[in-house]
């Protein structure tokens, strides 16, 4: 906007307010174009989010109206809920194992697919994205089934590695491992596809210019051309990755049952589900979700800082 820099310090409050008003009026077209999205966004996301925020500080069983209890939900969580502390550990192990690995995998696979012939690109993209479209917990249950009919067990017995069937889904030693495998399997989701699109969006002239300036092989091309021009997509994939690894829980619930043996695959989200939808202590469940949100927010800020030089 056409405000000269040297005058800006001298404006009074009133002038500033009228300038703001002028900017708002000048941006009418902008507001008009975001309005359709914002109307739905405010009604179905912002309002419910704002309504849910205070619930964490209340005692709410969905029958009686919420009763304000201050910070007692939070003190209970950290001081006396041993399973919550355990769920933090499970979530951290889970997020630290699946998050970075799957993020790097998303990028590398998207890049490798990009190096293929166009016909193969579609096929490979489908193969790696298909698990995110399919709802196949049943088949994973059959693969890791605890009797000899399970694919895993029969495969290992045939090879002579094990003699008797392993209880993959109920043995405390394997529960978390199996969950991580399946989580990794479905984790090439939104971030992966966005990166694929990002690769397609890189201008061909960039590669040509790179070739002229002495880029000799695909590794150099990856580091000097591809990564610097993919900042926004890398950020998108990072956010999606944070959400999916911190809120993981459905995989475990569908696969190894709820609650899992010895709470071995009990994540923070599972804990919230437990209190919210099994015991109907919504206030407590909301407090858990609030803590999780703060953790994700901090993590997002840190990754944003790390990726900072590639953004804008």
């Amino acid at each position: 906007m056409a405000v000269s820099v040297e005058n800006i310090g001298k404006r009074t409050k009133k002038e500033k307010r009228s300038m703001l008003w002028r900017d708002i009026k000048r941006s009418k077209a902008c507001y008009g174009m975001i309005a359709p999205f914002m109307v739905f966004f405010i009604i179905f996301t912002i309002v419910p989010v704002l309504m849910s925020l205070p619930i964490g500080f209340t005692d709410f069983d969905m029958v009686r109206p919420p009763k304000y209890v201050g910070l007692s939900n939070f003190t209970t969580l950290f001081l006396s809920d041993k399973i919550f502390i355990r769920s933090i550990r499970v979530t951290l192990v889970f997020a630290l194992l699946t998050g970075p690995v799957s993020y790097v995998l998303c990028f590398l696979l998207a890049w490798m697919i990009n190096e293929m012939h166009p016909k193969l690109k579609t096929l490979f993209t489908l193969i790696f994205y298909a698990p995110s479209m399919a709802n196949v917990y049943t088949v994973w249950q059959l693969i890791f089934s605890g009797d000899m009919n399970g694919y895993m067990n029969s495969f290992l017995i045939n090879l002579g590695i094990i003699n008797s069937p392993v209880q993959w889904l109920t043995d405390g030693r394997y529960v978390l491992g199996v969950t991580i495998v399946v989580q990794m399997w479905i984790s090439l989701g939104a971030g992966f596809l966005a990166l694929r699109a990002g690769f397609q969006n890189i201008d061909r002239s960039m590669y040509e210019a790179g070739a002229i300036e002495g880029i000799r092989n695909r590794w150099q091309e990856l580091i000097y051309i591809v990564i610097p021009s993919m900042g926004p997509q890398l950020m998108f994939a990072a956010v999606m990755q944070i959400v999916s690894s911190f809120t993981a829980g459905t995989v475990a619930q569908n696969l190894v049952g709820f609650p899992s043996t010895d709470y071995k695959a009990h994540t923070i989200m599972t804990h919230a589900f437990d209190y919210g939808w099994q015991r109907f202590e919504m206030g407590y469940a909301s407090a858990i979700c609030l803590i999780l949100f703060v953790a994700m927010f901090v993590c997002n800020k840190l990754i944003g800082k790390a990726l900072g030089k590639y953004i804008d």
Partner: peptide, 20 residues
């Protein structure tokens, strides 16, 4: 707000959506 909305997950949000 868009990024924050992506990160915010809560088990009560469906109840609030229902109320709305």
């Amino acid at each position: 707000i868009i990024v924050i909305a992506l990160l915010y997950q809560s088990s009560v949000i469906y109840i609030m959506q229902y109320i709305v």
